[in-house]
Design a protein around this nucleic acid. Sequence first.
DNA 1: CGAGTGATTGACTGGTGTCAAACCCTGTGG
DNA 2: CCACAGGGTTTGACACCAGTCAATCACTCG
Lengths: 242, 242
Amino acid sequence: MASFDKTLIAKLKEHSRLSSEDMAILRGFSHTFRELAPNEDFIRQGDDPHVSAVVMSGWVARYHLLPNGPRQYLSFHMAGDWPDAQTLFLDRMDHAVCAIGPAVVACIPHKEIIKAFEHRPPIGFAIWRETLIDASIFREAISNNSARTKPARMAHLFCELFYRARASGLTPDNTLDLPISLPQLGEALGMAIATVNRTLGGLRASRTMDFRGGRLTVQNWDKLCAIGQFDPGYLHLKRPAR
Amino acid sequence: MASFDKTLIAKLKEHSRLSSEDMAILRGFSHTFRELAPNEDFIRQGDDPHVSAVVMSGWVARYHLLPNGPRQYLSFHMAGDWPDAQTLFLDRMDHAVCAIGPAVVACIPHKEIIKAFEHRPPIGFAIWRETLIDASIFREAISNNSARTKPARMAHLFCELFYRARASGLTPDNTLDLPISLPQLGEALGMAIATVNRTLGGLRASRTMDFRGGRLTVQNWDKLCAIGQFDPGYLHLKRPAR
DNA sequence: CGAGTGATTGACTGGTGTCAAACCCTGTGG
DNA sequence: CCACAGGGTTTGACACCAGTCAATCACTCG
């Protein structure tokens, strides 16, 4: 089982400075692991969790459950991400979190995190910053799904996920395992399945990327970024990937 | 000039508990006022601000500047809101903030806020919570602009703004001054101006609300919420409005 | 009085959602 | 061991929403 060093701590260090004492505290967080089956919900809308989960392996996604039944996927999270640091200070979950493919998360009690925060403010600042970057990613998603053409929208999402994975050292080459189905892609990007598939075909034809069988292959990064109008500034990472 | 008591502090108390000592510290924040002309930018994309602004009167909006020239409005903020608490721990602004109509903001130095935070963690938690609620509003905007029909989308935005204003005690009756132009509405909701106008006409015809000349009038709140699928849970307010 | 911006409406067209069918693959149970 | 069900993928046909373009009017400001 991966340790916090290679996930949580590595992730926080992408944007924040941590003293060795801070890292020792983070490393010492008590936690329990939880294995998730594909599509298994980890937190539901309306829950009031008292633990916070860090992704250890696999992918996890946030989503809104819409009144008519379908979902709106809001963001995707990989090893090291802390998708529900958001829940630290919010009582009722306004969204749900589920696994995309098989995943493992580590659950840390809220109390412990807040205690660490009071003892060592820089830890709080780092986690706070993590939640602010999440917010920035949400903002980008608003623009992506509202203002960009369908091909740009899709290209941008793949750019973001690949870039973030790359920055976290999760992929050494130009591929990325991403067990997202086409219906899920549609529910993330606000487009019908038919359109998802046709747009995907268009990107394939442009020879910039390929996505099939849950695996993304980037063939021409620069051109893909141009199509998706991708500028990684909004990810606020200290050391850019690549 | 309005004081922090009726804006910042009242707003934080909508979702967080503050001791009298906390409030005294907040009240004592040094600050300078800045008056903004309609459409005047307060912060630009790429800036690295060392002060944080609280809205004292009027409206302020966040937006992304898109490569082709147009904007994507991300959120709207009224008196008491703290739109760039987001900037406390992020170096480069990934979005801009401008005034919608004439507005007044109070600028507080970052250093002072962080010092207060180290001295009294509950103040930090309250402000952190404020930024988390912002994030929740962003999430809702993703769903709104991605998954809802055009009429629902527009109704939802008006529901949110009216509800938030109401919760802040900014309007005693069923009207709200909201100097947003139709082009701006379009750039917020991801729809063309022509569609904005036609959709607005449809809502008028439903006799649930009217919006003209920068003034919103709510005629049938329940029906408007139904059209917009509006559920205020995501605003995480302790005492609901109405 | 002109320039600029916003509001409003009409006409046209293309993108995209909806519907439908077929195919592939996997897991399950008779 | 095979039949079947279910989900994902792919493709086609079709209709309609909504974006684009254009024209007009109202209003404000210099």
